[in-house]
């Protein structure tokens, strides 16, 4: 087992408000790592540390170290654009760009400088297949992405992320607005994808975390309360808080 991401003493402040309070954990390659916790516990903040999106806010202070493949992305001078190609993100609300299905997926590769139509088509096809969306989209590549259903849009966003050929995929509550069938499709896709990628899945749905993750973390008010193999976290949680959260006593 190899750590892809290592986080050391991570603290985040918005102005004087501390949102992450010393997070320490290692995230493994080729696994799905789940992050759960009540709203406001800092899950999204943690995600936006990993893709460096947090740095667009002008009132944040970040302390500690986050190593991806041994490189400290907080304290060394990493190229944000390069990093975001390596660390892809799928957001809670599917947000396709107001363009066609094809153009949405080709957007990232085009930015990388790929112009050849055949090559782009291959990437689009592969990405859609991996997101379990090709069969539904193969005749609709030129329709506007905004016309798709919510579930399709979310898988489109996943495909769009895959088209960047990332190594890590971050998903921040990707199923929060979806029906059970669409959710199942995303889960199937993720279980399939972990062979090739390191996946981090934030979810408020503890059942989903139990179903498809290998490791899980429980965040509460900016603290990492519990972290370990999902099976262990769900059967013998070390902390009473985790147990209460999993059994639905709060959340």
């Amino acid at each position: 087992m190899k750590a892809k991401i290592t986080v050391k003493d991570l603290e985040v402040f918005f102005d004087k408000n501390q949102v992450l309070r010393g997070i320490n954990l290692s995230i493994n390659k080729n696994m799905i790592t789940g992050i759960m916790g009540p709203a406001g516990s800092g899950k999204s903040t943690f995600i936006s540390i990993l893709n460096k999106m947090l740095e667009f806010e002008d009132n944040v202070t970040i302390k500690g170290n986050v190593y991806i493949d041994g490189v400290d992305i907080i304290n060394s001078d990493v190229d944000q654009v390069e990093l975001r190609r390596k660390v892809g993100t799928v957001f809670a609300v599917p947000i396709p760009l107001p363009r066609s299905v094809f153009e949405n997926i080709a957007y990232g590769p085009r930015l990388k400088g790929i112009k050849d139509r055949d090559e782009l088509f291959t990437i689009v096809k592969e990405s859609l297949e991996k997101a379990f969306l090709w069969d539904e989209m193969k005749d609709r590549l030129n329709t506007s992405a905004l016309k798709l259903s919510g579930g399709q849009q979310q898988r489109l966003c996943l495909a769009r992320t895959l088209a960047l050929k990332p190594e890590i995929i971050l998903l921040d509550e990707p199923c929060s607005g979806l029906d059970p069938i669409s959710t199942a499709k995303i889960e199937d896709a993720l279980s399939d994808l972990k062979k090739e990628y390191t996946i981090i899945l934030v979810s408020n749905n503890t059942k989903q975390i139990a179903r498809i993750t290998d490791y899980s973390a429980f965040f509460y008010m900016g603290n990492l309360i519990e972290y370990g193999p999902t099976e262990k976290v769900f059967t013998y949680p070390a902390n009473k808080k985790t147990e209460d959260y999993i059994s639905g006593k709060f959340g």
Partner: peptide, 18 residues
Amino acid sequence: VPKTYREGSLAMGATKWQ
């Protein structure tokens, strides 16, 4: 223009100007 459009584009490796 929704903030989410900008985030979506940035998350796909676009620079701010792109």
